[in-house]
Every structure is written in structure tokens, then in C-alpha cells.
């Protein structure tokens, strides 16, 4: 995966959404253009509550709702990591969002309607990998942000959580990652763990779209234990402790092709 263009954390690629175009801001430690003038308390409030140091709510395109359960230690670790980033003096462009979405106070209504802290507390009777997986999937990894459709108000469609989203910013799609569908597509804990490291699907295809970026810039940096925890939780979200073995998808021709090459 090629690195994203530009200096790290200086502001990202614009996100085209039905509500307007959002530009991820400069979050390098530059004192004027970035977050160098913030305190760690400001940082904690921004990450866990989605509120700026000036008291304005952030647009939910910043996925802070998934980070509400971050511990103080998580915040301190992140803060220290961000402080090591070389500062960049260039401010990111402003969002291009029309009324009424440009009216930030209106976001308080959105928060009242949709903002819920993720449920990531350990569950009695489930395994350690499962609990770790839930913490990551529902929290830091924020899988639902892409793999769940949105309501007209831009909130997650909780009735179809992780059931896929055909309308991602930029026109791409995220498939369903519900356990039954993952298993139906041939995924196992081992293959999903490996995919989060390598970007390879069980049929030998390589992720494209946003998921290629998620692997290259995100999950490939996790430990194998954490990747396996994510896979365990996604394939057994109820925590039953048993994951059905998938049958090979009927469209999978890889063994046929391989046999032919070996014989002819």
C-alpha cells in the first residue's frame, strides 16, 4: 500500500458525504495550525466526547463515538504518540458544508439522537480473545463506521449493524460482516486473522477499496493476538464459544485451477 500523499497528520483527503465535503484537520503538534496549543484534557475531550477546546461539537464524520470507552491510559498513550509527530505549519482547508449542517450547535440534537458509548465491558463467561475482540471491533477499530448503513440523519442504522453499507463517502461499498455471512463466504478465525494482516481473502483475492487502506494503514500494525481477537468476535458476536466451520464457497475454483496446472 502506498503511503497517503502529504505529510502525516497534516490533514487528510476530503470526504464527500451527502451532508457536504469534510476535510480532516491538521492534528500535528503545531501550535497554530495543529493541536500543539491543546492540553491533554482538551485532547481527551475531543477524542472521547467529540467536543473541541472551544466547546463546539465535532461533526460525526470524526468517529469519536467509538472512542468514548478509551481509558485515561489510552488517551495518555495517544497524546504522547501525537506529540512525537513532526509539526506542520499548514492549516487544512475548511469543511465545505452547507446550511444547516454547517450550524454546529445543531449537532447537539444529533448527539442527543445518536450518540451512545460503545458497549465494550468484559462479559462474564466469554473468552479473553472474545472480550478483546469486542473492545477493538466496537471501539478503536470502529468497524461499524463503514460496515453499517446510515439513517437519513447520518446516524448508524442500529437495526442493520455490521450488515454492510452501499453508500460510503466517495461511492465505495463495505460488505456485510455479520457472522453468518462471513462464515457463508468461507471465512474462519485463521483466514480473517491473516486477511487483517495481509489483505488477502480466502479465495486469493486481495482487498481493494477502503479495506485495503484499513489493512495497510491499520490492522497490519496490530499484533497477531489482536487480529485473532477481532476475528473471534466478528465470527461469534454472541460469545457462544463455537464457530461453525464454513464449507468452501461453490464459486471457489482455486483448487480446480491448481490441479489443472499441476497435471497439464
Amino acid at each position: 500500500m502506498r503511503p497517503l500523499r502529504g505529510l502525516p497528520w497534516r490533514g487528510g483527503a476530503p470526504l464527500d458525504t451527502p451532508f457536504g465535503t469534510f476535510v480532516p484537520p491538521n492534528i500535528t503538534p503545531h501550535s497554530v495550525a495543529g493541536i500543539g496549543g491543546w492540553t491533554i484534557e482538551d485532547f481527551a475531550k475531543a477524542v472521547r466526547q467529540g467536543v473541541s477546546p472551544e466547546g463546539e461539537p465535532y461533526h460525526p464524520v470524526f468517529t469519536y463515538s467509538f472512542y468514548a470507552g478509551f481509558t485515561d491510559q489510552d488517551i495518555a498513550d495517544l497524546w504522547e504518540a501525537f506529540r512525537t509527530v513532526p509539526p506542520v505549519a499548514e492549516k487544512a482547508p475548511e469543511h465545505d458544508v452547507g446550511f444547516p449542517f454547517s450550524f454546529r450547535s445543531g449537532l447537539k440534537l444529533w448527539r442527543a439522537a445518536y450518540l451512545d458509548a460503545p458497549d465494550t465491558d468484559a462479559l462474564m463467561g466469554t473468552s479473553s480473545p472474545w472480550n478483546r475482540g469486542r473492545l477493538l471491533v466496537e471501539g478503536a477499530a470502529h468497524c461499524a463506521a463503514c460496515h453499517t448503513g446510515r439513517t437519513l440523519g447520518g446516524g448508524l442504522d442500529e437495526a442493520a449493524r455490521l450488515a454492510g453499507n452501499d453508500s460510503l463517502p466517495g461511492g465505495s461499498k463495505a460488505p456485510s460482516i455479520l457472522a453468518a455471512e462471513l462464515i457463508g463466504r468461507g471465512w474462519t478465525v485463521a483466514s480473517l486473522t491473516y486477511a487483517l494482516q495481509s489483505g488477502l481473502l480466502p479465495n486469493g483475492d486481495a482487498f481493494g477499496g477502503s479495506m485495503a487502506e484499513v489493512v495497510a494503514q491499520g490492522t497490519s500494525y496490530l499484533t497477531d493476538v489482536d487480529r485473532a481477537a477481532i476475528a473471534t468476535y466478528l465470527l461469534d458476536p454472541e460469545g457462544r464459544g463455537a464457530i461453525p466451520t464454513p464449507t468452501l464457497p461453490p464459486t471457489d475454483t482455486r483448487m480446480v485451477a491448481w490441479i489443472i496446472r499441476r497435471w497439464i
Partner: peptide
């Protein structure tokens, strides 16, 4: 595989 993903994306 990373090159494939990079190209596909």
C-alpha cells in the same frame, strides 16, 4: 499481496 491491494484500492 500488499502490491495487489495497493493496486486494487
Amino acid at each position: 499481496s500488499a502490491t495487489c491491494s495497493s493496486c486494487h484500492s
